[in-house]
């Protein structure tokens, strides 16, 4: 496993795209967080923590691309066969990819969240004064947002392993994340609306960012992140099974 980790780290490190995509995660998350905070600066938004972390919902798209390419890039070139000839234990390869991608996203996520919260504090003048990581719920929202990005990365990795095509995998992941809330919105039945929100990886997962009005949430913060965790675990599991059963 140590060698497999070294391999996957070397692979990602030596692709120019990796550094750009990680920078993209931070920049996009911060930029959109600041924009959302600025829009709320005058009127005052209900939840300053959630507002300052709005950018996560966009930064996740870049995380998805990064994670999908870590697998899809090997399938599109056929390099995956070279990988499996060098490391025949395919589940080890997938696990190593998950660890390396997860760690990189963790680092980018921490940076993105820290800068977003600090920026939010300045931009959201009045409300922002309350925005401190020493505050329990705000800290939970911050940590939860970082974990949210990591889980989106793992979900993307699993999907890409199943689909074996980068473009298709990105489509599936973004569809899962962004279409779920849209579909839920057109469902008129309030019970089904709530059910759909509870199993939607993005809506449920981002519940972890809420610091006010927790009673109105479709699902509690940590349980919501758990839903996304289940999606990610499921995708990786199916991916691992597919690797075992299919020809490389």
């Amino acid at each position: 496993m140590k060698e497999a980790l070294h391999v996957e780290w070397t692979k990602l490190r030596t692709l120019a795209g990796t550094a750009w995509l990680l920078a993209g995660v931070v920049l996009l998350t911060v930029a959109l967080g600041v924009t959302a905070s600025a829009a709320c600066a005058d009127t005052g938004c209900g939840d300053p923590a959630k507002t300052s972390l709005t950018g996560i919902a966009f930064g996740q798209a870049v995380v998805a691309v990064l994670a999908v390419l870590a697998v899809g890039g090997e399938y599109s070139t056929g390099m995956i066969r070279v990988t499996f000839a060098a490391v025949p234990r395919r589940s080890t390869v997938l696990a190593a990819k998950a660890v390396v991608v997860g760690a990189l996203v963790l680092v980018a996520g921490v940076a993105a969240v820290l800068v977003s919260v600090m920026a939010g504090r300045f931009v959201l003048a009045g409300d922002g004064a309350a925005l401190s990581l020493a505050d329990g719920p705000v800290f939970r929202a911050a940590v939860g947002s970082v974990l949210y990005l990591v889980l989106v990365g793992l979900l993307s990795l699993g999907v890409a392993t199943v689909v074996r095509d980068a473009a298709a995998a990105i489509g599936v992941v973004l569809g899962l994340l962004y279409l779920f809330p849209i579909v839920a919105a057109v469902v008129s039945d309030p019970d089904w609306f709530k059910r759909l929100q509870r199993i939607s990886p993005m809506t449920a997962g981002l519940a972890v960012q809420a610091t006010t009005n927790l009673d109105s949430l479709p699902i509690s913060p940590w349980a919501g992140l758990g839903v996304l965790g289940l999606w990610a675990a499921g995708a990786l599991l199916v991916g691992g099974l597919a690797l075992r059963l299919r020809d490389a």
């Binding site: 391999v7 070397t10 030596t14 070139t77 056929g78 070279v82």
Partner: peptide, 30 residues
Amino acid sequence: PLRQVGSLLDASALQPSRTGRNHLLWLAHS
């Protein structure tokens, strides 16, 4: 396995933006 069996199935099975040396490097690490 590469210490027992060296193989070349498809010479184009590599990611084009990586240098030749780095392609060999990750294989060596494995």
